[in-house]
Amino acid sequence: MSPADSHAPLPAPAEPARRRGAFARTVRAELRLVLGRRRNVVLLIGLALVPLLLGVVLYVTQSGAFAGQGPGFIGRVTGNGLFLVIASLFLCLPFLLPLCIGIASGDAIAGEASAGTLRYLLVVPVGRGRLLVSKAIGALVFAACAVLAVALTGLVAGAALFGVGDVTLLSGTTVSVGDGLLRVAAVVVYVGLSMTGLVAVGLFFSTLTEVPVGAMAATVVVAIVSGVLDQLPQLSAIHGGLLTHHWLDFAEFLRLEPDPGVLVQGLAVQAAWLLVFGSLAWARFTTADVSS
């Protein structure tokens, strides 16, 4: 990372010990900034409302004609509150989660640039590479919070409204509550890790522009276009590498014997997007002229 420092507008490479402390401080400051920003807090609250809303709707209508119906896992929620977590994640995955994560990661660099604070940030005795890493950590932590916001309110609302019992898997096998909880936790972790590629894409767009809205929109568009391409049978050759293709593979944890191969494949694709777009963001950010 040392060549990165030579391009920082400010000189004076500090001694390593101090710099390490500076990096930790930068990360802490970044986390405070990301999690304290009112817009982000509102986004998290909005996401947390999804399972609440879904749970209440299903609770009110559970004796009606549509009880036990619905795509994905919605039909199972009234029987077992644990499925509210999964149904909510399933509902949020195509659009709401990418939107929130796109907003947070697209804002990471471009937001500072548009507010004119990026040049001051570069004064901190931390190389640009590390600065980018701290921004990435901030965006990743926000992504994790977004998934957790859905999952935790889903768990609490589901348990309160419908109770928690033995979990019926997709194969019709019933497993104990403990096993079920573990599987749901694994689903949440997998969904969280599935967002890392999108965070990297957002970070890259964020280094390209000083207009945060542009970076946010571009990130969301990537997720949506990827979802559309995934629907075209003519492109089946490239489906496996698409950013969103493996997102629904979290269902693997609800099968009789989750196939590690499928899960590793999904995570490897995310790692690939993370690597390519992370390095693109790094190349752009460490070579760009920062004027604002």
């Binding site: 060549p3 030579s6 391009h7 690597l275 390519v276 390095s279 790094w282 190349a283 460490t286 070579t287």
Partner: peptide
């Protein structure tokens, strides 16, 4: 140097 940096995503 900047060329070298842009080579990194290519290699990735």
């Amino acid at each position: 140097s900047s060329r070298a940096r842009w080579a990194v995503p290519g290699i990735a």
